[in-house]
Design a protein around this nucleic acid. Structure first.
Lengths: 110, 110
DNA sequence: TCCATATATCATGAAGTATTGATATATGGC
DNA sequence: GCCATATATCAATACTTCATGATATATGGA
């Protein structure tokens, strides 16, 4: 994850529909969702959603796989990890003491 | 941190100069940097930088404090934490098992 | 009060981005 | 091969964002 890639990813996440898509796909987990399902679930038109899925793909935040006539999309948690690590790297590299409490509060509630 | 706030923050981070500013201020730590210093360090013009600092302020990613004639800016780690927690919340809520390895890799290298 | 320094705001033009209707491509079933 | 379904691409318009020159505001010192 270099700076250019991070910028692309942040840009992808700075649009309401796309942020919704990523959250939806994270919840969908390994099952993923077909492009059409996603569009229906979020009340977006087919071609608009296709364009937005393309942006998220480009950003490395989602993946896809054809399944019959549909194309299923999945959250790319590895891509998300890379983005967060990019921010954390800056934080920890420059100021570990101030950074640690920040990380401590980000934990799975389970 | 609601969705609207997260969108503003992601938008703020999707611009090269602003991403550089945040990284710079994170490294500067509690000392912070004056607006003019930041502009000089990143090779940006005064008013352009002022506008970009305003965007980061609006997004809750940096803070400022007047010090004499200068205004010093600081990274707002609490704001950054809120943004990351917003993403993590989605992740952990929907898929704790897949999410944990992601969190495990984000640790301070120190 | 006057001047110099430091930063913010305003108005404008240029560039990028989103959405849309229309159309194209790809897959599966008959 | 033909049709229906599913998704992607294209071209155009509207919208937003960015950087800039010019100007305004605020602070400190003489």
């Amino acid at each position: 994850m270099d700076k250019t890639h991070a910028l692309t990813a942040f840009g992808a996440l700075s649009q309401p529909t796309r942020l919704d898509v990523l959250r939806l796909l994270i919840r969908a987990g390994d099952t993923g969702m077909a492009a059409g399902e996603i569009a229906t679930a979020l009340g977006a038109r087919q071609n608009t959603m296709s364009a937005n899925l393309g942006v998220l793909m480009q950003a490395g935040l989602i993946r896809n796989a054809r399944q019959g006539r549909s194309i299923r999309y999945f959250a790319d948690l590895e891509g998300l990890r890379g983005l967060l690590a990019f921010l954390m790297e800056d934080c920890c590299g420059g100021n570990p003491a101030a950074c640690q409490p920040l990380l401590d509060t980000i934990t799975c509630p389970s």
